[in-house]
């Protein structure tokens, strides 16, 4: 069931801005239908794969005449097939993502993932969504139909972040359900003691031939610590609270959060996960475009 509220996470201006974008992670996709990605199978496309000695039964249209002229041997040109790709978008729906009010990290992450799903569905890729907020995350299975975008957006709008961060188990479940190589994008603040295990699970997906992206969503408050005076700090996830002198702690905190970001980025780099720090002061679709560019840039570097 959908409503107009679904577009709260993907307004029309965002859709317009994203219309011309394509996400090409350049992995050997194992899609079911024709698409924009290189297939692991041979077929008809412009993506040259190899030269093969002619054998009986090969299509004579594929004979490379230039090679025949130079070497007096008959070779057939082979091309990759083109297919679509499966992409899993995983959003951290723990309680820590539910701040600051009202533009929460969760809401921002949802917008980024909605923008990504819009781009992916437009290129006929299959997109699935996981909302990780408990041991049994909400899952929207992969589909490639254009109408699937509405379902995804509706699910994102309806979700209410709560509970502890359980990204690792959510990731493992998603990976288990993802039979084919594809793309996994995780949007999370990673404010959990298990963040290293989460990055490790993403690394396992990369090791299987997939592409994994970590969109690190931290609020402006968490990045700049604009507090002063004595404040009672409360953690929604753990329930801890403490009356602290914010000004006295600022320098120490900023160093700690900076070190944390650097540590997460370094851990991602080690296992081949694409790390993208999300700037929540920018429009969400711009950050989605940034993720797309990061994936393309990665492909460009590897090429």
């Amino acid at each position: 069931m959908t409503s107009d509220r679904q577009w709260e996470v993907l307004p029309s201006d965002a859709r317009e801005a994203l219309e011309r974008l394509r996400l090409r992670p350049m992995l050997m996709a194992d899609g079911r239908v024709s698409g924009v990605h290189i297939s692991s199978h041979m077929g008809q496309s412009f993506e040259f794969a190899e030269l093969k000695g002619y054998a009986f039964g090969d299509d004579p249209r594929g004979i490379d005449w230039k090679v025949l002229a130079r070497t007096d041997k008959v070779y057939v040109r082979r091309f990759h097939d083109e297919t679509n790709m499966a992409a899993w978008l995983i959003l951290d729906a723990s309680a820590s993502m539910n701040q600051p009010m009202p533009d929460t990290k969760f809401r921002y992450g949802a917008s980024v993932l909605a923008a990504l799903s819009y781009v992916l569905l437009r290129q006929r890729d299959e997109v699935g969504l996981v909302l990780a907020h408990s041991r049994h995350p909400e899952i929207c299975p992969v589909r490639s139909s254009p109408s699937h975008l509405g379902e995804l957006c509706q699910m994102l709008v309806d979700a209410r972040p709560s509970g502890p961060t359980v990204l690792r188990s959510s990731l493992e479940m998603a990976a288990a359900g993802m039979a084919k190589r594809g793309l996994v994008v995780v949007a999370s603040d990673m404010l959990t003691a298990e963040w290293e295990a989460t990055v490790g699970a993403l690394g396992a997906i990369v090791a299987r031939g997939g592409v994994a992206v970590l969109a690190h969503v931290l609020s402006v408050e968490e990045l700049t610590f604009p507090f002063s005076g004595n404040l009672v700090f409360r953690s929604a996830e753990t329930g801890e609270s403490a009356l602290l002198d914010a000004r006295g702690l600022r320098r120490q905190y900023l160093k700690a959060i900076s070190d944390f970001k650097a540590a997460v980025a370094e851990a991602c780099l080690k296992v081949g996960v694409i790390y993208k720090a999300i700037d929540t002061t920018q429009a969400a679709h711009n950050q989605a475009a940034g993720i797309i560019h990061a994936v393309d840039f990665r492909h460009f570097k590897e090429a």
Partner: peptide, 17 residues
């Protein structure tokens, strides 16, 4: 001050201690 101090939801408390 504890009773009057504003309360802030802040989940990055691990970096405050």
């Amino acid at each position: 001050m504890r009773s009057k101090a504003p309360s802030v939801q802040f989940d990055a408390m691990m970096f405050l201690v």
